[in-house]
Amino acid sequence: MKSSSNGGLVYSTDGGRMCPECRRPILECTCKAKAKAVAVGDGVVRVSRQTKGRGGKSVTLIKGLALDSIALALLGKQLRTACGSGGTVKDGVIEVQGDHCELVVEELRKHGHNAKRLGG
């Protein structure tokens, strides 16, 4: 048996590879089922701009979308295309490179979301 730096079981001769999150064998892992579950929000999508920890470069953050991971990735792709820039989806938050808050709010409203601008 091997242990990772945080003390979690990585491999067991009984079950094979172990999931680092739920600490079960990969075949019995429950983490993927949780990831597919729809995130529940208050119905308001919040759009903000952030530069903290990014070397002075601004990023538009979209939080509060009650979508599953696949739909979130698809919406992220549509927003990045509309803005003409790159970005990613991390932990249920869509990140679009650059300051595109107003454009993102307009696009989200076109898709039927209740979008609200945060910050100045």
Rank of each mutant, 00 (worst) to 15 (best):
M1V: 02
V89E: 01
A39E: 12
S48L: 09
R17Q: 11
V47S: 15
P25Q: 07
L9T: 13
L79W: 01
R46S: 11
E106H: 13
G120L: 10
M1C: 07
A115E: 11
V38L: 15
C19F: 02
E95G: 02
M1A: 05
H113G: 04
H111Q: 13
N114Y: 07
R17I: 13
D99H: 13
A33W: 11
G76V: 02
A37H: 13
T13G: 09
R117Q: 07
R23N: 14
C31P: 07
G92A: 09
K90T: 02
G41C: 10
S12Y: 04
K57V: 06
G7V: 06
D68A: 10
E106K: 08
I94R: 00
A71K: 14
G7H: 03
H113K: 08
G8L: 14
V47Q: 07
D99Y: 14
R117T: 05
R17S: 12
E106S: 12
R17A: 12
L103T: 08
K34C: 09
H113R: 05
Y11V: 13
G7K: 06
K52W: 03
R17W: 15
D91C: 08
R54Y: 09
G98E: 11
E28Q: 14
K2I: 12
L118G: 07
R17K: 10
T60G: 04
